[in-house]
Structure formats: C-alpha cells, structure tokens
Amino acid sequence: MKISGVGFTSALIYTGISLIAVGIFLAITVAGEYTWVARIGGAVWVFMLSMIVLIPVIMPRVKKRLGI
C-alpha cells in the first residue's frame, strides 16, 4: 500500500462520517421550525468542523492499520 492510498482511504472514511453527521443534523432540523438558510448554513458548518476534527484522527489510524 502506497502513501497516496492512505490519503484516499482516509478521505473516504472522514468524508463519509462527516456526511453522516450532516445527515443527522438535517434530520433533526426537519423536525423543528428552521429556515432553509439555517438548515443549509448549519449543515455546511457541521460538515466543515466534522472534517477538521476527523482528518487528524482518521489519517494516522489508517496509516497504522496499513502498516505505514
């Protein structure tokens, strides 16, 4: 496994989890009385922060798992 493979695998994982977080966020907002702007803006912010939190957590773990 090459280093570039690590980047791709990691990206799949952290993007996937971030999208799940966005999905949950949107699902909750649907139950409340929120404007679409708040929903979309909030979803973008949740996605960004989730990515920032997850990238440094996921990448070393994937590297370790793949023995790099």
Binding site: G32, G42, L49, S50, I52, V53, P56, V57
Partner: peptide
C-alpha cells in the same frame, strides 16, 4: 486544536437546537 474544533461544533449544535 482538535478539542477546540470539537467544542466549537458542540457549542454550535447546543445554541442552534
């Protein structure tokens, strides 16, 4: 840094919901 971003996310969700 990681903790602060996680906290910022939590704070956002708390004030939002």
């Amino acid at each position: 840094i990681l903790g602060v971003h996680a906290l910022a996310l939590t704070v956002f969700l708390f004030w939002f919901f």
